[in-house]
């Protein structure tokens, strides 16, 4: 972003990579897949790189409002400094925080989750899914709480999967009653409390019960939790957990 600004250019969108997209080995692959898609469809985009910092979501959910607002204010200063108008992110937590919680602190942007962005690209015909390497393959979609219940985004990720011509199978608990992966509310950053079972195992079992060979996710935390869950059930060889961007990139031969 700094380079673009130095050249006096302004991007169509700012891609907010997020901490998981920047540092988590698994989710870095999603970041790269999404960037390849952006490049393939010729969208002029920028990233903040080292100027991006945590949105503050986990701090706020864990109760540390000071830390959240410190993060939020400094991010808003950077974003406003570059006069950013439109942000796309692959993380529902970053999406929710920037979209819903930054405006009150002085940061108002058009914020789009990558599932909606991909849906738009497909609808506009910028991405054409041909050949159908996914045809007939069973895919189940796991609703991220911060997309679904938190922001009422249920259809965009599904319409992306439908475009792949895959056989979309639903879990019993889906959409408004979708079961959390267990990572929200800053649970990602601590061990679960004492109980009979881990939430991600419960959810992975439900996903495996659909008989799908791919579990599609649209959130870095869900990705970690469900991958671990599938591993915990010794099914990592025949069932893959993939992000929507990876599936689209694959269908485009971008990976």
């Amino acid at each position: 972003m700094a380079d673009m600004a130095a050249k006096g250019e302004s991007p169509e969108i700012l891609f907010w990579v997020g901490c998981a997209g920047s540092f988590d080995e698994r989710y870095k692959r999603v970041t790269r897949a999404f960037v390849k898609i952006l490049q393939a469809v010729d969208v002029k985009f920028a990233v903040l790189g080292p100027e991006e910092t945590c949105t503050g979501d986990p701090a706020r959910r864990a109760g540390n409002e000071f830390l959240f607002q410190m993060q939020a204010m400094s991010n808003i200063q950077v974003l406003n400094g570059y006069n950013v108008k439109k942000i796309v992110t692959a993380c529902p937590h970053c999406f929710n925080t920037i979209k819903n919680e930054y405006p009150e602190l002085g940061g108002a942007y058009e914020v789009i989750h990558h599932s909606t962005f991909l849906q738009q690209l497909i609808q506009e015909g910028k991405i054409k899914v041909e050949g159908g390497s996914f045809k007939g393959k069973k895919i189940t979609y796991h609703d991220s709480c911060y997309l679904g219940r938190a922001n009422n985004i249920y259809e965009a990720p599904r319409s992306v999967l439908e475009a792949l011509d895959a056989d979309l199978v639903e879990m019993k608990r889906c959409r408004t009653t979708g079961l959390c992966c267990g990572a929200g509310g800053a649970q990602m950053f601590k061990e679960p409390e004492k109980g009979d079972k881990d939430i991600n195992i419960e959810r992975a079992e439900e996903a495996l019960a659909t008989g799908a060979s791919t579990i599609a996710v649209a959130c870095p935390f869900c990705m970690t939790m469900l991958s671990d869950g599938v591993k915990g059930k010794d099914r990592e060889n025949d069932v893959k957990v993939k992000d929507l961007a990876e599936l689209i990139a694959e269908s485009q031969g971008l990976q």
């Binding site: 990579v17 901490c19 540092f23 080292p50 991006e52």
Partner: peptide
Amino acid sequence: FAPWKFPPSDRFKWAQD
């Protein structure tokens, strides 16, 4: 500036890997 302990300067590393 991230919930995990990574140096902030590594934030753009995904592009180089």
